[in-house]
Computed example of a mutant assay.
Amino acid sequence: MKILAAMSGGVDSAVAAARAVEAGHDVVGVHLALSRMPGTLRTGSRGCCTIEDSMDARRAANLLGIPFYVWDFSERFKEDVVDDFVAEYAAGRTPNPCLRCNEKIKFQALLDKAIALGFDAVATGHYATLIDTPDGRELHRASAWAKDQSYVLGVLTAEQLAYCYFPLGDTPSKELIRREAEERGLQVAQKPDSHDICFIPDGDTRGWLSGHLERTAGQIVDESGDVVGTHDGAHGFTVGQRRGLQLGRPASDGQPRYVLSIRPVSNQVVVGPKDRLAIGRIAGGRYSFTGAPGFNLETPFACEVQIRAHADPVPAKAWLRKVSEADRTEQHRAEATHEIVVEIDLVHAEPLLGVAPGQSAVLYIGTRVLGQFTIDRAEAAETMSAVASTLSV
């Protein structure tokens, strides 16, 4: 096959490209320049897509003896990932930019260009597994769950999966990848993994947002609507946050309070006790599926749901339904006509904690990724007690 290897400059993508070459494919390496400041240098495990990463990717390609190019996707990245990130926070949601990057950049913009140039597949260093079945290609978890990255690939469609190539999916550990890189002579063998949001390398999301959103003072209120403090910008808070609230009035029971929700229209931050962060039902739109489910989505079906990249999946039941006006919240997308509803199996799992609108929920059936949706609303687990006994899925 003619394969375009996306080379980030890290050890995973370098080994993925090496394995593609070793398998006999016609491989071309490409590094995506996503930063608007291409001269930025990387600091340890912080930041990515820097000039240093580009140089590391080029050195790896030279060692492998494959052609190498740098494609400038910085404008597309700003529009589809960075601007979306800012808009989501402005609307009181907490987005996952890594999923948006996979959806809009790596497996849309890059994949579209690769197909137009005649490539058969795009190879990346993601830890996930592709299985071809009589009913089509399926996306599954990697063999090493500790490194599994299927969550951030949950936005891929069946059409995109047909052009994907994940050579690392059956590797049981990252240590083996680093050892293989050393044996191949790749200089990135011990390069630290990147962490945090790539375009906020110092990890200070609140400070970064302050430079992109107008800071408007507002009220911090409890669930009854009583004012218990003030804030200088609601975008600086996220659901589940405890530190930095600076409340002027302690809770009546003396217990700490947490952010329960953000109301963008009234510019209020709602706080309450920790047990109110326990969620038994989530729902949302902006959904997609990795392939034909093979069953009626409007009929409740058993599955597992995962709401963070490194969270454990929990048993649940889910179904697709029309959005009623009564269900809409301030964080609900106005254009959503249908939504996926997920009820956590409270008999066999703990409630989800600190669920924020804007987060992505990925649905699994066994190891297979069924699809994903963006959370618009969440209901406290205590309101689900009446139905908990029926959730044997």
Rank of each mutant, 00 (worst) to 15 (best):
P256N: 13
I375F: 03
S252V: 08
V269M: 00
N102S: 04
V11A: 09
V270I: 15
A114Y: 04
A361T: 00
G371N: 14
F301I: 02
D253S: 02
M7Y: 05
A234Y: 08
S35D: 13
S392N: 07
L161N: 11
C101T: 02
L245S: 03
A116P: 04
E182C: 05
K2T: 13
V305Y: 01
Q255D: 11
F237D: 05
D275S: 09
R137A: 00
L168T: 01
A336F: 10
C98N: 00
A5E: 02
S389W: 09
D84C: 01
I66W: 05
G233F: 01
L168M: 14
Y258M: 02
K106A: 03
E103V: 01
G10R: 01
V82W: 01
V355N: 00
S35L: 14
I3N: 07
D148A: 08
T329S: 12
R137G: 10
V70L: 07
V81T: 12
A318S: 13
E175R: 10
V239G: 03
G125S: 04
I307L: 13
A17S: 14
R58H: 14
A334W: 08
C164F: 10
A311D: 15
S173D: 13
E304N: 11
H348C: 00
E88Y: 03
E159M: 05
K274V: 02
G248I: 11
A61T: 09
A121C: 11
T124A: 06
N96C: 08
L110V: 09
I3W: 00
Q331K: 05
Q372D: 10
G118L: 05
R308M: 09
Q190R: 15
P351L: 07
G125Q: 04
I344P: 01
L277A: 07
D132H: 15
G229F: 03
A6C: 11
T157E: 14
A326M: 12
R178S: 12
S389C: 09
V21Y: 06
V155W: 00
G203M: 13
K106Y: 09
L213M: 10
D202F: 09
A326L: 01
L153N: 02
Q255V: 11
P172V: 15
P351Q: 04
P97T: 10
G358L: 00
K274R: 12
A349N: 11
K147G: 01
A302K: 05
A283P: 02
D12I: 07
P300F: 01
A60K: 07
Q268S: 06
R242H: 12
G203A: 14
F373A: 00
H140T: 02
M7E: 01
Y364N: 09
P97M: 08
A356M: 07
